[in-house]
Write a protein that binds this DNA or RNA. Structure first.
Length: 486
RNA sequence: UCCUGAGUAGCUCAGCCGGUUAGAGCAUCUGACUGUUAAUCAGAGGGUCGCUGGUUCGAGCCCAGCCUCAGGAGCCA
């Protein structure tokens, strides 16, 4: 990157470019927010372009004292000065300021972010300012890389990015509680003669809600475009209070015609590896910082709970190893024979075939037994959704869940049931109203073909790559029960 | 929603068996120092002890209800 060009285009040079500059003794303009002002002489300035700060050297003896007093943590400033090799240790280059302008003051008595350690809980309460910390700066730059990498991955493979609706009328997908969308006066909504709320008079002429999944619409697209993916917000009104659930989250849902379950797994594994690789390549500084942050945090934990791999090693390990693939039935066998099960260490002992695995079981498989990402397939049909393709054993369906260490389920997908009779039979059994999904069933009536897809929880991916522990810290403004501030 | 724990200065926390004027570190302010890396040294200011009610001569501490937060579970991505 040539600094002159950047300077011309934006009237300032971003700190990332300055720190990478091979040239010195050039005049530069740099703008950003003060992190600390040390020794009445050294400003650590950050503009979010990188995790690293640039050091601004102030000639305090020849600077107006009232200006010096306004160089406080959090203030926005513009600096003109010479980029020089640093005289001190700790940085290669620094800017010898010739002109400093305060763009925005920051009252140090009131500004909540002071140069000290703050807890993640506190920062969550000031989510509007937490971008200005090293940790959150790194997280959101990594999030950006992952987001872009997902598009790159699919675009390179000829997938069509399809915008499925945010507002939907079907409440039939069984993916969880929905948020209602209405124009009614909630105090006095129109009623029918029988006293029920009359949705015929509502904006859409029927009851509507925010989407819980774009999959069904995604399948419609795939039945003509071959390969599509969605990447958009998803809403679940579950009263979930955990480190892995949000009421508003982003999900990637590819849907591929002529794919079977193995193709589906191959694609999901390739996608995860690609985006992790991109993050390692493009956010080395950020991940190094997050890796150290995690190491510090792990020091607080008892020895046996600590991870033996650093964050970066963990990500690299993911790239270097194939995910372990096995069926639900095989997993049950392993769990049955496992030490914690025999020693009755599981809160929910493995009793037999047919029930869903508990978190502790998934963790055992991923973190203790295989020690790598695991793909479980062919679950019992009674614990999975109606649209999954039924196996010949009449007991299981072509489902696959990808389980990651520390996160649990990061991907859930399946080969879809393309046979009309089988699908209708399953919908009847599960009480899914066929009339409402007439358009979905039409794809099985006209040119049905084998196809498959999955849903990847974007925040869970960001959680894994950044090594953070709470999903509320990897989305800018988390929505969860009792919280929609900002 | 359930289980467990927590809520005391701007932040992180201590506060004994219920007893006089509620403490520390960091941050902030003032002064000193001036090539510092979360600078350092000295000093100062800063409190509705989550809210409501109760027990008691007396409550930060005990009891009840509520609110909020964290961790775990369920629901799932």
């Amino acid at each position: 990157m040539r600094l002159e060009i950047l300077y011309y285009m934006s009237k300032r040079t971003k700190i990332k470019a300055l720190l990478e500059s091979e040239q010195t003794h050039i005049e530069v303009t740099v703008k950003g927010w003060i992190r600390t002002f040390r020794n009445n002489q050294f400003i650590a300035l950050n503009d979010g372009s990188t995790n690293n700060n640039i050091q601004i050297v102030v000639d305090f003896e020849n600077t107006d004292p009232t200006l010096l007093k306004r160089l406080t943590t959090g203030a926005a400033i513009s600096v003109v000065g010479e980029l020089v090799a640093s005289l001190g240790k700790g940085q290669k280059v620094e800017v010898k300021a010739s002109q400093i302008e305060i763009l925005g003051d920051s009252d140090p008595e009131k500004y909540p972010l002071q140069p000290k350690k703050h807890s993640l809980e506190f920062l969550r309460e000031i989510a509007h300012l937490r971008f200005r910390t090293n940790t959150f700066g790194a997280i959101f730059r990594v999030r950006n890389t992952l987001s872009y990498a997902i598009h790159t991955f699919f675009q390179d493979r000829g997938f069509v990015y399809l915008h499925t609706p945010i507002i939907t009328a079907s409440d039939a997908e069984g993916a969880g509680e929905t948020f209602h969308v209405t124009n009614f006066d909630l105090v006095n909504p129109p009623k029918t003669e029988t006293g029920e709320i009359d949705f015929k008079q509502d904006f859409f002429g029927r009851a509507t809600n925010l989407t819980v999944s774009g999959q069904l619409e995604g399948e419609l697209g795939a039945m003509a475009l071959s390969d599509i993916y969605t990447f958009g917000p998803t809403f679940r009104a579950e009263n979930s209070n955990t480190t892995r659930h949000l009421a508003e989250f982003w999900m990637i849902e590819p849907e591929m015609a002529f794919y079977d379950l193995v193709d589906n797994m191959d694609l999901a594994e390739a996608l995860l590896k690609f985006v992790i690789k991109e993050a390692l390549a493009k956010n080395a500084d950020d991940l190094e910082f997050l890796s150290q942050r995690l190491a510090e945090e792990e020091k607080q934990k008892p020895q046996n709970e600590r991870s033996d791999l650093s964050l970066i090693d963990k990500l690299q390990f993911c790239l270097d190893n194939d995910f372990q693939r096995l069926t639900y039935t095989e997993a049950i066998e392993i769990l049955k024979e496992s030490t914690p099960n025999k020693k009755k260490k599981f809160q929910y002992p493995i009793e037999g075939w047919g029930t869903d695995l508990q978190s502790e079981h998934e963790r055992y498989l991923v973190e203790k037994h295989f020690k790598k990402p695991v793909i479980l397939t062919d679950y019992p049909k009674q614990i999975k959704a109606f649209y999954m393709r039924q196996n010949d054993d009449e007991q299981t369906v072509r489902a696959m869940d990808i389980l990651f260490p520390g996160i649990g389920e990061i991907v859930g997908g399946s080969q879809r049931e393309e046979r009309l009779e089988k699908l209708e039979q399953r919908m009847d059994e599960m009480g899914i109203p066929k009339e409402e999904l007439w358009w979905y069933l039409d794809t099985r009536r006209f040119g049905a073909c084998p196809h498959a897809g999955f849903g990847l929880g974007f925040e869970r991916l960001v959680l894994f790559v950044t090594g953070m522990g709470n999903i509320r810290d990897v989305i800018p403004f988390p929505r969860f029960p009792k919280n929609a501030e900002f």
